[in-house]
Design a binder for these strands. Structure first.
Lengths: 120, 120
DNA sequence: CACCGCGGTTAGCGACGACTAATTTCCGGG
DNA sequence: CCCGGAAATTAGTCGTCGCTAACCGCGGTG
């Protein structure tokens, strides 16, 4: 399975919810990403079938090792990009919004260059 | 009509071809973007119907004022982003590739911040 | 003059990701 | 015990974007 942008977004949101609330359910993801419940349901089915997440009886979603890896990578990019944008003068919420889109597109070379810049 | 990423790419490529070769035909666009002829044909139909381009009897494609505006904006972003990435240490061809994706996503606020940075 | 190739187009198909509407399942309170 | 609400799912639809196969029209050349 190839991981698409939307799948990365879903995995990232699961991680964010775990940090923020301690758990993640489909409904929370729908709210967090402003998509409909069925969209989340379908996406979770795909992620489940491909071994990126598990769902227990209470419908709580957990990341598998594979899922965790992707989620972490995307989330790290998200934070770094946001920080970078703020640093060059973009307003916080705008920075977050743009980071959200860019995080899926850039090569690791570019990400590393930005990381380097941000740390200076 | 809402202009999508793909439409932006087509318009940008038309502008690039005009600069590089003096004219743009569907077949050149297909080669430039690595897509099939029918994909270009269909895209040109949309752009034509929505007033972004014209095609003369020789099938040469020209940008209308509206089309020119979008193409220029995207192209400007493309160049600025590439320059920026190279500046922070990304290898040229990688920079171009990443710029190609980012150019569609960033807000004007972010673009302006990057422009500012690049000029310093 | 007949043929071939190039460029463009039409028709038909598939993947993906979103949506709405409707159904299922479960749980807590009256 | 029954009902209502919350969460998840299924079914069905749509829009975007790509593709292949097949066809059209035109111009140059043997």
């Amino acid at each position: 399975m190839k991981i698409h942008k939307s799948a990365e977004d879903y995995l990232e949101m699961i991680l964010m919810l775990q940090e923020r609330k301690g758990y993640a359910r489909s409904i929370d993801i729908a709210a967090g990403l402003s998509v409909s419940k069925p969209s989340v349901s379908f996406a979770m089915k795909q992620l489940r079938e491909n071994g990126y997440i598990t769902m227990d009886e209470g419908n709580v979603i957990r990341l598998t090792e594979q899922g965790q890896e992707i989620a972490s990578r995307v989330y790290r990019r998200h934070k770094t990009l946001t920080k970078f944008l703020v640093q060059i003068g973009v307003e916080e919420s705008q920075a977050r919004e743009d980071a959200c889109k860019i995080e899926h597109d850039i090569s690791s070379a570019t990400f590393e260059a930005i990381t380097r810049y941000t740390q200076e």
